[in-house]
Every structure is written in C-alpha cells, then in structure tokens.
C-alpha cells in the first residue's frame, strides 16, 4: 500500500507508476483533491482516459475501487442501498411459524444490517482496512438532475440517512472521482464542490510515450506514424475525433496484423478502429487517407533528417 502523495511531483509519480502519464495540470488537480479531501471532477471527450485515472489510483494506492455507473433514472435503491425483500418475507414467515418473537423485535431484526443490500455509495462510506476506498462515479452526465441533487448531499458531508437505521457517516471520506462526457452540463453547485479538470487530447510527444507504455509491442517507426496520423485526424472536421483509447487500439490492431509501417491500404482496412461514424469513415477513406499518410511520412522524414 502506498501513502497519499505529499507533493504534486509525487502525485505525478504515483500515476506514472500505474502506467498513466498525466500532464502537470492533472497531477496538480489530483494532488489537491487527495490532500484536501474534495472530489476530482474530470470532464473530456470519450476515450481520453478519465475512467482510467480512478482505476490506476485504486491500484497504485492499494485501495478498493467502487464504481457507480450512472444512467438515466438512477435512484437511491440502485446507488445507495436496498432492503432484501425476499429474505425479509421469509424471515416474517419463519418467525410466524416459530412464534418466538414479538412485533418490536421482529421489526428491529427485519431492518437490520443483515437485510441491507449495500450499493456503491453506501459501501464507499464504510471503513476499510486498506484505507478509504476510491469511489468512481462514472459518466455523471448520463443521469438526471434529481440524482445530481442527491449526490450533492452525499459528497459534501459523506453521509447518508437510512430511515430505519439512522445516519451513516464515513470515518474517512472516500477518494471520489467523477467523470463526465459533457453530453449535458452538470450543475454548478456540484462542480463547485470539486476540483475540476478538463482532460484534453495529449500532445504528440506524450501520446507517443503513452503508446510505448500501453502498446509496448509496437515498432517504434509504426508508433510515430500512428500518432502522426491520429493527430492529423484530430485537426480534421470530423463528428467524433479519435481518442487516446482509439490510438492504443489501432496500434494493437496493426501489430496484430504484423504491420511495421503504415500504407494506405492498411489504413483503409483498419480505419474502423479509429473512427466510429460511417460519415467520418467515408470522408477519410481512400484518397484523403493516403494524402494524410503522405504528409505524416514526409514530416517524420523531415524531422529525422533535421
């Protein structure tokens, strides 16, 4: 188990030790959120590694990862707790048969810890030997406003109230990471309680580094071409730009196909791993792809010559 980082440098090193290469601003935001005990709010396009941060954090710190995947209509029974009704029914029937308990005792039994099904938010408040868990609230923008308002209460006090049991408060608050794809603006009141970070596409150098770590089997020349091509694509007018995840997928795919250097045909055949909309693929496929590829190759050649 690793200790919570004490400086921004340590925070950066921590993520790097988990094969995640952050930039300085992300490391700062993460360090602040860890040391001041406020949630980290990560926003960015799909596939830039938002969720990955939480996973790496739980791994490197040796904490438990609790993930709450958001969707429309998410409510308390799926996010916080639910009573185990079938078991309660059986218990009532059994106590009737045995006739050993009076009403008050039965009620106290029925609504006790034994019959409680704990969901991620409640689990996150429980003490853990390894230290407070990492709570990942994923794609918060998918849920609706009422849940957001509920979350506000949980995240500010780290406590939830179960009418039958009373209020449950976390001894040490969990490390909270919230991600959003911005399909909807999250309310300011929630953002205000968090450290905000916009996860951008990485620079070419950083992406090359990422490829080295995440797709180590890829030939160096190929990696350079892959990153160059993806960066060209990100300058284009596409509906969905390829993220880092797509770059890594593509590198894996090309390595699998024993490709050592990009050629137009290969690009056309594997374009589906990079672009996920038919319109975008149509736009790039064929002559546009070979034009971009030529540009990339000549740039790399020029850089090599210099």
């Amino acid at each position: 188990m690793t200790a919570i980082p004490n400086t921004v440098d340590e925070a950066e090193a921590l993520l790097r030790s988990g094969d995640y290469l952050p930039n300085r601003s992300l490391a700062t935001a993460l360090y602040l959120s860890l040391s001041l005990g406020r949630p980290l709010f990560l926003e960015g396009e799909a596939g830039v590694g938002k969720t990955e941060i939480a996973k790496v954090l739980s791994e490197t710190l040796g904490r438990r990862l609790l993930r709450l995947q958001c969707y429309e209509g998410l409510d308390v029974t799926t996010a916080v707790y639910e009573w185990n009704y079938p078991r309660q029914m059986v218990e009532i029937r059994m106590s009737e048969a045995a006739g050993d308990r009076d009403r008050g005792a039965l009620e106290a039994d029925l609504f006790s810890d034994n019959f409680l099904i704990k969901r991620p938010l409640l689990q996150a408040l429980e003490p853990d030997e390894a230290g407070a868990p990492v709570l990942l609230i994923d794609e918060l923008d998918r849920t609706d406003e009422p849940f957001e308002a509920f979350l506000l209460e949980v995240l500010s006090d780290f406590q939830v109230t179960i009418p039958e049991l009373g209020t449950i408060t976390a001894e040490t608050p969990p490390l909270v990471i919230i991600t959003s794809n911005r399909t909807r603006e999250i309310h300011d009141a929630l953002k205000r309680r968090c450290f905000y970070h916009w996860v951008d596409y990485p620079s070419a150098e950083r992406e090359l580094e990422i490829l080295k770590v995440k797709a180590p089997g890829t030939a160096e020349a190929l990696s350079e071409e892959v990153v160059g091509f993806v960066h060209k694509l990100r300058d284009m007018d596409l509906f969905k730009l390829p993220g880092v995840a797509e770059t890594i997928d593509w590198a894996h795919a090309l390595t699998q196909l024993d490709c050592l250097s990009l050629d137009p045909e290969m690009v056309n055949d594997t374009l589906g791993t990079l672009l996920k909309y038919q319109d975008d693929i149509q736009k790039i496929e064929g002559s546009e792809a070979s034009r971009l590829l030529n540009e990339v190759k000549s740039q790399i050649a020029a850089a090599g010559a210099a």
């Binding site: 300085r24 601003s25 926003e43 603006e185 953002k191 968090c194 905000y196 916009w198």
Partner: peptide, 15 residues
C-alpha cells in the same frame, strides 16, 4: 507553474 494550476483547479469549473 504549480501555483497556476493550483488556482486553476479551484477557480475554473468550465472549459
């Protein structure tokens, strides 16, 4: 640089 990003993460909450 750190000072910048520190203030950034507190004051900025929209892109």
């Amino acid at each position: 640089v750190d000072f910048y990003w520190t203030l950034y993460s507190v004051f900025v909450n929209r892109r």
